[in-house]
Computed example of a mutant assay.
Amino acid sequence: MTSYDVLVEELRAAGLDPDAVTAAIDAALEEDLPGGSVDVTSVATIPADATGAGVFAAREPGIVAGLGVAALVFLRVSAEVVVSDRLPDGARVAAGDVVMRVAGPTRALLTAERTALNFASHLSGIATATDRWVAALAGTRARVLDTRKTLPRWRPLQKYAVRCGGGVNHRFSLSEMAMVKDNHVVAAGGVVPAYDAVRAAYPDLPVEVEVTDLDQLRRLLDAGCDRVLLDNMDSATMAEAVRLTAGRATLEASGGLTLERAREVAETGVDFISVGALTHSVKVFDLGLDLQ
């Protein structure tokens, strides 16, 4: 059985803020039960004292994530719900595998069902998509990287799901790392002036600069930039960028990259491949809850 306190400690150990996750759950439940209203269908069809049990099962193969969040949803609806046999986030599952069991007041189980599935299905979808990229890059130096293209208020959970799938997190906020993009370059008058301005203002902060051609890359390397984003380059140009860099900076490939092209890009020798689609347009993982 999983207690409320255990779930909170699991979230904290995973790098998540339990208070923020709980607030997100409560906000999601408020959408279904505004102003303290009730699940009218369950109240009408299920006796108040009825109890039941159900299983969460995977309906496709993949990587699960967010099961702890889903378990917490049930406990927020009713402290009488018992959660058991929960697989750890990051576990690989096959179609038909039971990933979690719940038991308790039947009304509570059905009231919490959709919210729990929304969290777990979305996060498992991200973890599963990330795992596919990790598999495509296996044997190369490249790591798959997420972006800030996340759903508002979901960033910590979505980036957690990327980690569950074996991916790497890019910056969480605009303040923890400087990332000079094309519009910054235009405003500053060039890649080197933009880089120098950030380095002068924030000398201890990591800085990454986006380039669109090899000439910009050369100038940045001469200026001492040690992290460069290669934007929308073809594979031959990226391979030449790796040769020119010769280990002086880490290189991130970005810009509309697809899983079908992942191996080709990784074999150019870049260090990271960033994929916004991991979080902004991922397909949800097919999970279901079936009452026994």
Rank of each mutant, 00 (worst) to 15 (best):
residue 144 V to D: 08
residue 104 G to E: 06
residue 53 A to C: 04
residue 162 V to T: 11
residue 50 A to L: 00
residue 168 V to N: 03
residue 6 V to K: 15
residue 257 L to T: 12
residue 216 Q to P: 07
residue 156 P to V: 05
residue 273 I to T: 07
residue 147 T to L: 07
residue 22 T to K: 09
residue 152 P to A: 08
residue 58 A to C: 01
residue 236 A to R: 12
residue 47 P to D: 07
residue 237 T to R: 14
residue 116 A to W: 09
residue 230 L to S: 02
residue 290 D to Q: 07
residue 160 Y to N: 03
residue 90 G to S: 06
residue 195 Y to V: 02
residue 236 A to G: 13
residue 14 A to M: 06
residue 283 K to H: 13
residue 16 L to C: 09
residue 156 P to C: 10
residue 49 D to R: 15
residue 71 A to Q: 05
residue 261 R to D: 10
residue 274 S to H: 04
residue 46 I to L: 04
residue 131 D to T: 05
residue 285 F to T: 03
residue 165 G to N: 02
residue 146 D to Q: 13
residue 81 V to K: 03
residue 183 N to L: 10
residue 273 I to F: 08
residue 73 V to C: 08
residue 95 A to G: 11
residue 149 K to A: 13
residue 207 V to C: 03
residue 189 G to Q: 15
residue 58 A to Q: 00
residue 196 D to W: 06
residue 111 T to Y: 01
residue 9 E to F: 10
residue 80 E to G: 08
residue 172 F to I: 08
residue 232 N to K: 10
residue 1 M to W: 13
residue 23 A to Q: 15
residue 13 A to I: 04
residue 67 L to W: 01
residue 147 T to M: 13
residue 139 G to T: 13
residue 261 R to H: 04
residue 247 G to A: 15
residue 173 S to D: 15
residue 81 V to D: 03
residue 92 R to T: 14
residue 17 D to L: 12
residue 166 G to P: 09
residue 170 H to S: 12
residue 230 L to E: 05
residue 92 R to I: 02
residue 254 S to M: 15
residue 149 K to W: 02
residue 21 V to F: 02
residue 28 A to S: 10
residue 250 T to I: 10
residue 279 T to L: 05
residue 10 E to Y: 13
residue 130 T to F: 06
residue 167 G to H: 15
residue 62 G to W: 00
residue 207 V to P: 01
residue 203 P to K: 08
residue 30 E to I: 12
residue 278 L to T: 02
residue 288 G to H: 02
residue 23 A to K: 14
residue 68 G to S: 09
residue 114 R to E: 10
residue 85 D to P: 11
residue 108 A to E: 04
residue 70 A to G: 12
residue 30 E to L: 15
residue 218 R to Q: 11
residue 104 G to I: 08
